[in-house]
Amino acid sequence: MNPKPVQRTTAPPVPQRSRKRKKKRRAWRLLRNLTILTAISGALFGGWFFLTASGTELRYMMADTLITTQHRHWAKYLIGQEGLDRQVAKYTEQFAKMSETTSTISVQVPTPREEAKKPDEPPVKIEAIEGPKFKGHLLIVRDPKKIRLAVPDKVGKGEKVSSMVKRTGAIAGVNAGGFVDPEWKGNGFQPTGIVISGGNIFYNDGSMTTPTSIVGIDKEGRMVAGRYTPKQMLEMGVQEAVTFTPKFINDGKGLIKSPADGWGIAPRTCMAQTADGTILFAIVDGRQPHSIGATLYDIQQIFLEKGAIIAANLDGGSSTVLVHNNEIVNKPASPYGERYLPTAFLVFDDPAHAPIRNIWEGLDISKIDPSKW
């Protein structure tokens, strides 16, 4: 007896509206789960960031980095306004103490006769430097007396370092001192503090007895860094100088004791000198994928490895630039390229005849509007 054939029935198709509802519910569940996961992760990160020692160290490092930029006020969102004020006061006091240290180790600058015995040695050399978070260059100047402090050639406007190098016929150049920039437009014409070039005061926003922190070179070719009055500078025979801070190596010893005191991570330009008179400029890129930036502690360690006995900080950030043979060697942090600046340390074959004139002579500096070009 044949069994009855099994009747197969096809399930009715799921309405399209029902499928859409299921997809929507899955999407909402996924979104809900992601939101919960994000909230939990955020809470855990916030707890670590604000309540643990390692998180606090990172917060203050980030705040210090912001303090070195034009967006200093943003640091308050990391450490509060009181924390920001406290951190700025701390660095101000720390830098002042560093500037007051005096050098006792003498520098033996080569005489012209000794230099003449080295005809095959180039006046400058450039070496690559790098660390875990940064890449940069070291400009090595054998004879410190080949360096002059250059300034712009037009009233009312700063000048790019590459332009200064080309215009004056220099071999190489780096940015030097800071400038007044109230609206962060980078006019670069009005320096801060003092500018000395060729042994003459080109610019001084204080009196002859107002102390200011300087970085420069005296008539014997010895690097000078510290806090002095313009009167003292002239008595000391300071030849080339700008105002900046801090001095961070003295007598071959680092004054910055740990990375946490290195004033954040940023593009850097710093200057040092070894016992044989050689000047070292460290130029470090920053705020870019290939190089986040360096702390002053990072630069200090590089200089100490090279035998520096004195070192000091120069203007950095978007101003940091190295020019050699009329080409920009590094990658400036500014998306617009080089900044217009008031000062640069340039290296010359014949510095005595460098075409550098006092662009501020005869100007009433109280009437300069640094926000206008």
Rank of each mutant, 00 (worst) to 15 (best):
V109K: 00
P110F: 02
P110S: 08
P110Q: 09
T111H: 01
P112M: 05
R113P: 00
R113W: 10
R113K: 10
E114H: 09
E115K: 09
E115F: 06
A116Y: 02
K117E: 14
P119D: 00
P123E: 02
K125P: 03
I126N: 04
A128V: 13
G131L: 02
K133P: 02
K133W: 09
K135D: 07
G136Q: 11
L139Y: 06
V141C: 06
P144V: 05
K145D: 03
I147Y: 00
V151Q: 12
P152E: 06
P152F: 08
K157I: 10
G158K: 11
G158Q: 12
K160V: 03
V161L: 10
V161N: 09
V165L: 09
K166W: 11
I171Q: 02
G173C: 12
V174T: 13
N175F: 12
N175K: 14
A176R: 15
G177E: 11
G178R: 15
D181E: 14
D181I: 12
P182C: 10
P182D: 10
K185G: 12
G186W: 14
G186R: 15
G186S: 14
P191G: 12
T192D: 13
I194R: 07
V195R: 09
V195T: 14
I196P: 01
S197M: 08
N200P: 02
I201Y: 07
F202S: 06
Y203D: 05
N204C: 08
D205A: 10
S207H: 08
S207G: 15
P211R: 14
P211E: 15
S213E: 15
I217L: 08
I217V: 12
D218V: 04
K219F: 06
R222L: 02
M223T: 04
M223H: 03
V224E: 05
G226C: 10
G226T: 10
P230A: 00
K231P: 01
E235W: 05
E235T: 06
V238H: 03
